[in-house]
Design a protein around this nucleic acid. Structure first.
Lengths: 136, 136
DNA sequence: GCTTTCGTACTACGACCGTCGTAGAAAGGG
DNA sequence: CCCTTTCTACGACGGTCGTAGTACGAAAGC
């Protein structure tokens, strides 16, 4: 399977993107430091740098080379990226039908009350937007 | 990262497992035929065979070699496998918090009205069961 | 019996993934 | 000016993934 050009970021790429989404533009060292903080992740500096360079090639990040320390910024937004990841996962794992996934999720008991409320809000929002479409 | 020994099946492995879950024990050719039926998937016979052999090594399937044509059976059950896949995905993509995933799912507009209603029912059910626990 | 068909075993390959080592440029301190 | 630190660039490596070619034996057909 000739790897499709636009796939979801890999695991390591996503870890880095999350840092950039939270912190905004950062240098390789900046990303490294945050990565090291979280959950015993010992990574080499050059590893992070290489990752960022690869991600630039994939157009996941942009880079400002005007200073000696290059500054990387996310080039993809969080929401669509995650949306695509979900969509791909649903396709691969549940043949494109989200219902099965939902059953697993809700039954897992990992949702707290706040999450449930937000979920209900989302449902209402979706219903309303669909009504609008029908009214047209 | 020394790949953990018990990870979720890969994409191709999952495709094959799905066949075995639906059809029960099958030969390499049997699996191939079903795979070819669905969605223009042209695969080589030896590819499927190799996959099955790898999956045996990973203990995803068991094999009966008493006949010339080896017969493969799934060795992992569907529900826990999918559950694990979901869990891994939630960890990787949403840092272990399923709420974000749900929001994406709902917003994706891939859920029809029936699914939404079922989801709401599940939420209510979950709330009630949690109340019970608190009452104890 | 001889040939054609069908099955498994073995090997390989290209792509990607995550990880670094090392080399060399650049900046800054003394 | 030289030395140390701090960057980037380049290349490599061990692993997995998906795919398949080829070899060879066993079975089946004639």
């Amino acid at each position: 399977m000739t790897r499709e050009n636009s796939r979801t970021p890999t695991e390591a790429e996503l870890r880095i993107l999350k840092v950039l989404w939270r912190k905004g533009p950062a240098t390789a060292r900046g990303v490294l430091e945050i990565l090291e903080d979280q959950a015993g992740g010992k990574v080499g500096y050059t590893t992070v740098l290489k990752m960022l360079q690869i991600m630039e090639k994939k157009e996941l990040v942009s880079v400002d080379r005007s200073e000696r320390s290059h500054v990387y910024s996310p080039r993809v937004a969080e929401t669509p990226t995650l949306r695509q990841a979900v969509s791909e996962f649903v396709d691969r794992t549940f043949g494109g039908d989200p219902a099965g996934l939902l059953v697993h999720l809700v039954r897992d008991g990992r949702l707290d009350e706040r999450s449930l409320e937000e979920l209900e809000r989302s449902i209402e929002l979706l219903r309303r937007s669909e009504e609008e479409q029908e009214d047209r």
